[in-house]
Write a protein that binds this DNA or RNA. Structure first.
Lengths: 162, 162
DNA sequence: CGGCGTAGTTCGCTGTGCGAATTACCGGCT
DNA sequence: AGCCGGTAATTCGCACAGCGAACTACGCCG
């Protein structure tokens, strides 16, 4: 297969640089709402449901002590709350406060908006293809659910009905 | 067009989660060679050519003071060197040391290897499509060259013989 | 020469992330 | 019951990351 080089880059560089873009979006989006990217990511994970520290650590790929600190600071900001786990006295469930829930929604929405803008020049079919290809990568590599799918303002797809 | 939902995710979540993967690769790869992800990224940028602080800041999207610190620490590790700019007494050119060049090559190679493994389940045509789609996003959004291309599809490594 | 803009550094601060050590508890075993 | 290994989470000390404000030193225009 002869691919004529229209200035395209390899898949490795493409992945790295698109990741750079996404990181920048998290940073900007976070700054807009007065949270760090990490705290924003934490909020997004907790949007789905409250979570134990262990599970959070696995999801965010953080060492226990790192997570303790992150939750501490986010709690100090009034965005999350530690609740005792009724089943296990040792364990803790981290949940969004009311303010945290509100902020999480805004941060999430803004982040989605900005990220949807990245492939603005792609037509719907291309976006679909991209989502499909990246989706396979994400699944094959068992990426934790650091970002839940909420609405599909994007298009007709993702009706999680079946 | 009815596309049956095989569990695919939206393009936003796909981008976010794949970025998460790439970030993890940088972290692991860096750990393997005793550098932080940021320092590794700095090395990768400098692989192409020495660079002034201003240009580095623009490429890495860091504030001046942040970059001073990053270069300080990387210099302390013996990986980069500050050289005076012959044209401008104020300016500085940051260049790889010999050890830095060596380590950059290894870090770069290892990072490429790991990132190439991410889409292992995609056949060549799919990878090609992915590279094309992400490449357009990267170009449209003017992502700085935080990762130079030097992989096999273009021929063996960047000629450093210069 | 005077003054403005630019290139980098310094300083103080908050946040991030880790490993080792510690505390408190669960659960199985005797 | 009592013990004890494993688990959940915190604490502590450390190095790194990133920022803004203030500062130095130089280039450059007039």
């Amino acid at each position: 297969m002869v691919k004529h080089d229209d200035g395209g880059i390899g898949v490795v560089a493409a992945l790295v640089r698109s990741a750079f873009l996404v990181n920048a979006v998290y940073a900007e989006s976070g700054r807009e709402f007065g949270v760090t990217p990490q705290q924003g990511q934490l909020l997004c994970v907790l949007m789905a449901r409250p979570c134990g520290m262990g599970e959070l650590g696995a999801t965010l790929r953080l060492a226990k002590s790192s997570l303790t600190g992150l939750v501490d600071r986010t709690e100090r900001n009034g965005l999350v709350r530690r609740e005792p786990d009724p089943r296990d006295t040792r364990a803790v469930r981290v949940a969004l406060t009311e303010r945290g829930d509100e902020l999480a929604g805004e941060f999430y929405a803004e982040t989605c908006r900005r990220i949807e803008d990245l492939p603005a020049a792609l037509d719907p079919a291309d976006r679909d293809m991209l989502a499909h290809l990246l989706g396979r990568i994400v699944r094959d590599n068992k990426v934790p659910v650091v970002f839940v799918e909420a609405d599909a303002s994007n298009g007709p797809r993702t009706p999680r009905g079946g």
